[in-house]
């Protein structure tokens, strides 16, 4: 091929990739712009701090904001220890190249590919129908306390959904710690657990937080897993116990978009809710990134 043709292809390819990138940015800008344009006018302090009223056509979304934050918090408390421990086991304790470990890794990767709605159904079948019912039978002599949709079950279901993210990123962070660092600890007489605690975890904390960030922003955005496991259409009170239902922003959006008695009256509220949901997700992400960079800087100072 002549030099002229090669140059032509080079320019063409540059233009193509550039246009693809521009298209993505344009789409994001249109979506965000549209939501901001329609959503911001209706925003007010009242909107953020009051409950919906008059069949969702008036009032605010405070219960949904509260429920989302509560849900994500519970989910994080559940998923981070479980995911980090799983990753530590797979990376440090499990015998290398064993069939069992291979199987567990494959299972975790497959978990990441399961549709969210399946997690929702699993949560209903396992947590509520099985675990919750058993708890009620054993501790509450069959009265209905935990055998019903509740924020704890929704959070645990969401934790299962985000588990692969935490496991994979933690494993990645552990894998990059050089072998020589492990040997230092062992040569000083560290047990395996001490090696993990003193050497691996301090170095892996950045990766663990990255996984947590991804899990949190996914958890704040998913609706399907909580559909049957705890999200409520409307609640006159805020959840104060783990076995109560809750309102959630994503689900609230879905409800207002599909079940509203008066679509036109709901529309401005709907836009504002979407705007708040996006902002909340961004803020959560942003906070997590800040924490991570703070820790990275502290680590770098020690480096």
């Amino acid at each position: 091929m002549s030099r002229r043709w090669i140059n032509l292809f080079t320019h063409l390819f540059t233009a193509l990739t550039g246009m693809a990138c521009a298209l993505v940015i344009l789409l994001v800008a249109i979506i965000l712009g549209n939501i901001a344009y329609h959503g911001i006018p209706h925003l007010s302090w009242r909107f953020l701090t009051t409950a919906p009223s008059s069949g969702m056509t008036e009032g605010g979304i405070f219960p949904a904001i509260f429920g989302t934050a509560f849900l994500v918090l519970l989910m994080t408390i559940a998923v981070v220890p479980l995911g980090v421990c799983t990753a530590i086991y797979l990376q440090e304790y499990a015998p290398v190249k064993s069939k069992w470990v291979h199987l567990v890794r494959m299972a975790i990767q497959n978990l990441a590919g399961v549709p969210a709605i399946v997690f929702g159904l699993f949560g209903l079948g396992f947590f509520i129908e099985f675990v919750g019912r058993r708890v009620d039978q054993i501790f509450f002599s069959g009265q209905l306390y935990f055998g019903q949709p509740a924020i704890i079950w929704a959070a645990l279901t969401m934790a299962l959904l985000t588990l692969p993210t935490v496991v994979v990123s933690t494993e990645e962070a552990l894998r990059v710690v050089p072998r020589s660092h492990r040997e230092v600890a062992y040569a000083l007489g560290a047990t395996r657990w001490q090696m993990v605690w003193y050497v691996l975890l301090p170095q892996a904390i950045g990766g663990i937080l990255t996984g947590t960030i991804l899990a949190v922003s996914r958890g704040a955005g998913e609706v399907a897993p909580i559909l049957f496991t705890g999200a409520a259409y409307y609640l006159p009170y805020l959840p104060s116990r783990l076995n109560q239902q809750f309102m959630e922003l994503g689900y609230h959006v879905y409800v207002m978009a599909t079940q509203s008695p008066d679509v036109d009256a709901t529309k401005p509220i709907l836009y504002s809710t979407v705007f708040v949901l996006l902002t909340l997700t961004f803020l959560l992400n942003f906070a997590a990134i800040l924490i991570r960079s703070h820790i990275r800087r502290r680590l770098a100072a020690a480096r």
Partner: peptide, 24 residues
Amino acid sequence: GMVFAVPNPLPMSILDNLTLGLRI
């Protein structure tokens, strides 16, 4: 005790490196 061929201080302070054995 053991000292390796390649210097392998851990990514922490000089003091923390030294006290690692004590903590263990």
